[in-house]
Each structure stands twice: as C-alpha cells, then as structure tokens.
Design a protein around this nucleic acid. Structure first.
Lengths: 142, 142
DNA sequence: TAATATTGCATAGCTAGCTATGCAAGTGTA
DNA sequence: TACACTTGCATAGCTAGCTATGCAATATTA
C-alpha cells in the first residue's frame, strides 16, 4: 500500500491553510492584531456589546479557544468587557476605539491575501474553488 | 466596505483544515499517534535512518516544529536516534518496531478521512479540487 | 422553596505551529 | 593552522487550537 501526500486532500488543505495564515499574519501584524483574532474582530465589527455565547455561535472554534483569545484581546487593548445586567455569569464584549478603527485596513489585508493567493486561478475556477470548499465543509460539519 | 467569511478563501481553508485535522485525530488516536506526527511518519515509513535535515527537506514545516515533534515522538517510543558517524551534530532517525507496524492502519485512516470528506463531490470534482489546491499552494510557496 | 440540572465562562494541560536565538561541530580560507 | 563562517539542531517564548474539568449563576422541577 502506498500513500501520496500530493494526492491527499487532508495534507494539501493543511499545508494551504498554513500558507494562508502566514501570509495574513504578515499583513496584519502592522495593525497590532494576529490571525486568531480575525474572526472575532469580523463579528465585533458587525456588532459589539454581545455576550461570549453570542460570539461563539458565529465563530467556528471551541468555547475554550474563544475564551482564551478574548483574554489576549483584552490584554492587548482590543476589547473591553462590561457587566451584563441580565446575567451575572456573562459579560458584554465591546471593541475599543483602537480596534474599531482597524476595520478597513484589516478587511483590505484579508482581501489582498485572498486575491493574491487565487491569482493562479481564473475567475471561473475561483468561484468553483470556493463552492467546492463550502460543500466539503458543510458535509463534514456533521 | 464589507467582508463575507463564506466568500473568503482564507476563512474557508482554515475552517476546513481544522475539520480535517479533528477527523484524522479521532481516527488515529487508537494507534497512539497524533496528527502532527503524521507527515513525519509518512516519510519515515518510506525510508528511515535519515538525518533531521533530510526529513526537513521533505516536510512542509519549519525546522523548530520538526525538532519539537521529533522529541515528542522519541518520548512516545515512536522513533529512536543513533549517532551519525559522518557528522557529530546530526543524528540518524529510526522508526521503532511499534511505529513501523502502524503503517497500514494509518494509511487506511487517512484515506478514509479523505474519502469520507470528499463524498459530497463527484469524481471529476474531486480531481479538480485537488488540482486547484496544488496550484494555489505552488503559487503561494513563493 | 429547596434540591437538582443546566448554562456561561474560565482554567488546566496538552499538541502544532511560528519566529528568534544559541551553540557546538564542521567547513573554508588567509 | 588559526580564525571566521556556516550548518544542524535545540531551546525559548509565543499564538491557536483542542479536550476535559471546575464553578458560580441561573433555571427547572419535585
């Protein structure tokens, strides 16, 4: 029996994911943010003043991962937390002004990574690629 | 300006990579190995008794990542290291019998993950998907 | 209403990955 | 041959991710 890495979806995906993350990290590090914070920021830029639970429902990571990333974001002055009047266990999560101001630059960085990475594909292929990924993901999400 | 995660290649790739890793981890954990060891084992199953440098040239991670994973593999009884007569800085890396014996089961596990994950695509789409990924990767590898 | 179950979040402890740095062993050169 | 340079690997220190567990606050139920 043999196994060819270059024909293994899992291997290729893992490798590609690390290349993307590295590329994005380089582009956003001047903004003072890191890749793991990106999905969280995306949600908070849409709407802040939410509970961790609300955030969790929109982000594809485990609760513990989110909690840890949030605490680093608080440490780094990207978010603040206030009491939730409705529930003493939960807090409300707010962007700081500093973090709010990063939005456009961050969007641009991410778009640029995507654009550049996909330039090797033509427009039809790009659309196809995204669609294939969405299907694989939804098939795996159980 | 807006940003849609579901249309972002980077976001989808990251998410998909974590789903794959989780799936593979579940399948190989009965074998006593973990996902980060997989690429290294793949190479050693082909040929062991090699230096870390040789391994590194075949594996798409940084040298420090490899060194750390190797030391956990040694701790876990998957590899042994012997002196390299040709160079006192380097050592030769060998699979233990235990690790050598895992090969077929491990191959099978990985194939099963790939097969199951890609069942949502037809045969043409599967081929296409792999090809698109290979092109994106080679475009990003600088 | 008291006891029990659930929820919301934090923490512990681990692997996987990265960059940066250190250092001994080997190589090349004045 | 002595000295500088390079190489092979290890280590430090960090983020990102996971599972498992703990715990106080809330909700449910007998």
């Amino acid at each position: 029996m043999k196994f060819e890495k270059e024909d293994s979806a899992g291997y290729l995906i893992n490798h590609m994911a690390r290349l993307f993350a590295k590329e994005l990290q380089q582009r956003i590090s001047p903004l003072g943010i890191v890749v793991g914070q990106f999905p969280i920021l995306l949600e908070l830029w849409l709407k802040d003043g939410v509970s961790q639970k609300d955030l969790l429902s929109k982000i594809d990571v485990e609760q513990a991962t989110l909690a840890n990333t949030l605490s680093r974001m608080e440490r780094d002055g990207l978010i603040k937390r206030t009491k939730n009047p409705a529930d003493a266990r939960a807090q409300l999560i707010w962007l700081t002004e500093k973090a709010a101001a990063l939005r456009n630059d961050a969007y641009q960085s991410a778009q640029n990574v995507n654009l550049q990475a996909l330039t090797v594909l033509n427009s039809t292929e790009q659309t196809q690629f995204l669609e294939l990924m969405r299907r694989v993901i939804s098939g795996m999400r159980k």
